[in-house]
Amino acid sequence: MDGSMGRRPTAWMAAAGVLGIAAAVLAGLLAWRWDGGGGAGASSGGPGWAATGPRAPTHEHADFAVVIRGERFDFGQPQFISDTEGKELSEHVHIHAPRYTVVHVHSTLVTWGEFFQSLGFKLTDPSFPGVTDDRTCLELPSGEKLCNTASERWSFIANGVPVDGLATVNIGDLDRVLFSYGPETPGEALAKYWGLVTDQACIPSELCKARIPADEPPETCSGRGTCTR
């Protein structure tokens, strides 16, 4: 037998070994990003939930509603509210009186996942690379997990259009967004619950001042580009 032919199996084995090591390293890097490097399994707040890149100051607002089995979740509870008495749940994004269905965004690149995490929730959905529909869940501050099942599912509606997920999507100025969990399809959730999403973000943005009730005290955080506290 030719000597070069006799060496071929050894060469192939060496090449396979190198490829195996490279694959293991890559898998390790991906696992690190997934569980601790800012992916869907990240447990820390802040930029891990936002798109990568530097942030800049801004001041924008969006309307939202979370509907669970036909009931709109109450974000007017004290634990979810940032106020003027030193309690600020996040420097980047918050809600406060008197409009608990309006998100105030103070930094660019703030995502819906980051907003929810600042309130003690954890949203995992297909907007994360590699997350399939069957792994979509919202963990509540109580620890209860609401996940897609054969009988109930999450529907995400952004500005009247069903989308696959929103956790890694940046909050846009004057967006209106619905998060619905129940037996409904996205189309059914849109038809039944879209009316629960307010359209009040223009008020703190000072784009529709005529809609502000005359007897309402001034908001502690209003305007575009600035925030008075």
Rank of each mutant, 00 (worst) to 15 (best):
42 A>Y: 15
42 A>T: 15
43 S>P: 04
45 G>W: 09
45 G>M: 10
47 P>T: 12
47 P>W: 10
48 G>S: 14
48 G>A: 13
49 W>Q: 08
50 A>S: 15
50 A>F: 09
52 T>K: 10
55 R>V: 14
55 R>Q: 15
57 P>F: 05
57 P>Q: 09
58 T>W: 03
58 T>F: 02
58 T>N: 02
58 T>A: 09
58 T>E: 14
58 T>P: 05
60 E>H: 09
61 H>D: 01
61 H>V: 03
62 A>E: 03
62 A>V: 03
63 D>E: 03
63 D>G: 02
66 V>G: 05
67 V>F: 05
67 V>Y: 04
67 V>A: 04
69 R>C: 06
69 R>V: 03
73 F>H: 11
74 D>G: 09
75 F>I: 07
76 G>L: 11
77 Q>D: 12
77 Q>I: 09
77 Q>V: 10
78 P>W: 15
78 P>R: 14
79 Q>L: 15
80 F>I: 06
81 I>S: 11
82 S>L: 07
82 S>I: 07
82 S>F: 06
83 D>R: 12
83 D>E: 14
84 T>Y: 12
85 E>S: 14
85 E>I: 05
85 E>A: 15
86 G>V: 11
86 G>R: 12
86 G>H: 13
86 G>T: 11
87 K>D: 07
88 E>V: 14
88 E>D: 13
88 E>R: 14
88 E>A: 14
89 L>T: 11
90 S>Q: 11
90 S>R: 10
90 S>K: 10
91 E>G: 14
92 H>E: 15
92 H>Y: 11
92 H>P: 02
93 V>E: 09
94 H>Y: 11
96 H>P: 01
96 H>V: 01
96 H>A: 06
97 A>V: 01
98 P>S: 10
98 P>A: 10
100 Y>C: 06
100 Y>H: 09
101 T>E: 09
102 V>S: 05
102 V>N: 04
102 V>L: 05
104 H>T: 09
105 V>Q: 07
105 V>N: 03
106 H>T: 10
106 H>S: 10
107 S>H: 08
108 T>H: 05
109 L>M: 06
110 V>G: 03
111 T>S: 13
111 T>C: 04
111 T>V: 04
112 W>S: 04
112 W>D: 03
112 W>F: 08
112 W>Q: 01
113 G>N: 03
114 E>G: 14
115 F>Q: 05
115 F>T: 02
115 F>D: 02
116 F>V: 02
117 Q>S: 08
117 Q>C: 02
117 Q>A: 09
118 S>E: 05
118 S>M: 03
120 G>R: 01
121 F>M: 10
122 K>D: 07
122 K>T: 00
123 L>Q: 01
124 T>G: 00
125 D>I: 00
127 S>Y: 00
127 S>K: 01
128 F>R: 06
129 P>M: 00
130 G>I: 06
130 G>H: 02
130 G>W: 00
131 V>H: 00
132 T>C: 05
132 T>R: 10
133 D>K: 12
134 D>N: 13
